[in-house]
Computed example of a mutant assay.
Amino acid sequence: MSDVKCRNVLLVGASGNAGKNILPALLADTNFKVSVLSRADSSATFPANANIIHVNYSDKPALVKALTGQDVVVSAVGGEALLNNLDKSIIEACLQAGVKWFIPAEYGFDFNHDSASSIPINNGRLENIKILEENQSNIAHTFVSTGAFLDWGLDTGFLGFDIANRRVTLYDQGKNLVSGTILKNLGKTIVAILHQPQLTLNKRIYIADATFTQQDILALFEKYTNVKWAVKHATTEETLKNAEEAWTNGNVLDGYIGFILGLAYSGKGACDFEDKINNQDLGLERVSLEQAIKEAVQRNKINVH
């Protein structure tokens, strides 16, 4: 299927963190006729040059109709839709609608790594991978591992760094390697993937701007803020244990966050793939960790020294 055409491209989840960075990159490329699939009751707004298709995701015939005529469907769903495995419904509808290529919203971990199956929040995505691999004669796929979303993770504090208060939580002494990607480069990645099917169809693509430790980030933050940061320590073992307890007790958000941080910072390999990255193969420039930290300091209105 290396000759699959990708003129008509539909994006699901365009209003989320990933989608907001993928959509502009698709719209900027005149090779694509871009549509956005949006919930029927959504109030999200999108650029005028995107074709907006509203649909009730639970209405399977309507979903199939909405996807009919699309060459490629790119998913960027997150939050509740990701936890409820909306992608599975999208995949099933794609198969019925004759879509030729699907890119699921499984950005982040290397789901080929054994440790990815160790946390329950990954079960749905692992199920989707199996479905797509079993049906690749009918619909091609590309899996994309990005590691941590570096800029978003720093700005929100998700990665353990409290920029405003100069505090950090270091997991396992902050010494384990993690790969990470700037969100805007996810959009460039999707476009590059679509332009090079001979390299990307039915494969896992690894993208990273930098591979780093928390200690690396801390040193750069202290350099550019000219302040010694307060350090708190945690272990990934305890973090994963607490996440399991929260998840079991129905505290989905705390469980979700704990599982991601516990696995990402554990050093088990699911979020460290520097030796596999395809940036150069796809013609994607990398952003250095130092540049990423400098930009984070600037975005958060801290004087750069």
Rank of each mutant, 00 (worst) to 15 (best):
residue 205 I to M: 07
residue 205 I to Q: 05
residue 206 Y to W: 02
residue 207 I to G: 11
residue 207 I to Q: 12
residue 207 I to L: 11
residue 207 I to P: 14
residue 208 A to N: 01
residue 208 A to M: 00
residue 209 D to M: 09
residue 209 D to P: 13
residue 210 A to E: 04
residue 210 A to V: 03
residue 210 A to Q: 08
residue 212 F to W: 04
residue 212 F to D: 02
residue 212 F to Q: 11
residue 213 T to P: 09
residue 213 T to V: 02
residue 213 T to G: 03
residue 214 Q to K: 08
residue 214 Q to T: 07
residue 214 Q to P: 15
residue 215 Q to I: 05
residue 215 Q to C: 12
residue 215 Q to N: 14
residue 215 Q to G: 10
residue 215 Q to W: 01
residue 216 D to K: 08
residue 217 I to G: 05
residue 218 L to Q: 02
residue 218 L to M: 05
residue 218 L to V: 02
residue 219 A to G: 13
residue 219 A to Y: 06
residue 219 A to W: 04
residue 219 A to L: 09
residue 219 A to D: 12
residue 220 L to W: 06
residue 220 L to F: 06
residue 223 K to W: 01
residue 223 K to E: 00
residue 223 K to G: 03
residue 223 K to T: 01
residue 224 Y to C: 10
residue 224 Y to H: 13
residue 224 Y to R: 10
residue 224 Y to M: 05
residue 224 Y to S: 09
residue 225 T to V: 03
residue 225 T to A: 06
residue 225 T to C: 14
residue 225 T to D: 02
residue 226 N to E: 08
residue 226 N to M: 01
residue 226 N to T: 05
residue 227 V to C: 13
residue 227 V to S: 13
residue 227 V to W: 08
residue 227 V to F: 13
residue 227 V to N: 15
residue 229 W to K: 09
residue 230 A to F: 03
residue 230 A to H: 11
residue 230 A to Q: 14
residue 231 V to P: 14
residue 231 V to L: 06
residue 232 K to W: 00
residue 232 K to I: 00
residue 233 H to V: 00
residue 234 A to F: 02
residue 234 A to T: 00
residue 235 T to N: 08
residue 235 T to C: 07
residue 235 T to L: 04
residue 235 T to S: 14
residue 236 T to I: 00
residue 236 T to D: 04
residue 236 T to Y: 06
residue 237 E to M: 09
residue 237 E to V: 06
residue 237 E to W: 03
residue 237 E to T: 11
residue 237 E to P: 12
residue 238 E to N: 15
residue 238 E to M: 09
residue 238 E to S: 15
residue 239 T to G: 12
residue 239 T to D: 04
residue 240 L to Y: 02
residue 240 L to T: 03
residue 241 K to C: 04
residue 242 N to T: 05
residue 243 A to E: 01
residue 244 E to P: 15
residue 244 E to N: 15
residue 244 E to T: 14
residue 244 E to I: 02
residue 244 E to K: 15
residue 245 E to F: 13
residue 245 E to K: 15
residue 245 E to Y: 10
residue 245 E to H: 13
residue 245 E to T: 14
residue 245 E to G: 11
residue 246 A to W: 01
residue 246 A to G: 11
residue 246 A to Q: 10
residue 246 A to K: 14
residue 248 T to E: 11
residue 248 T to S: 14
residue 249 N to I: 00
residue 249 N to R: 12
residue 249 N to V: 01
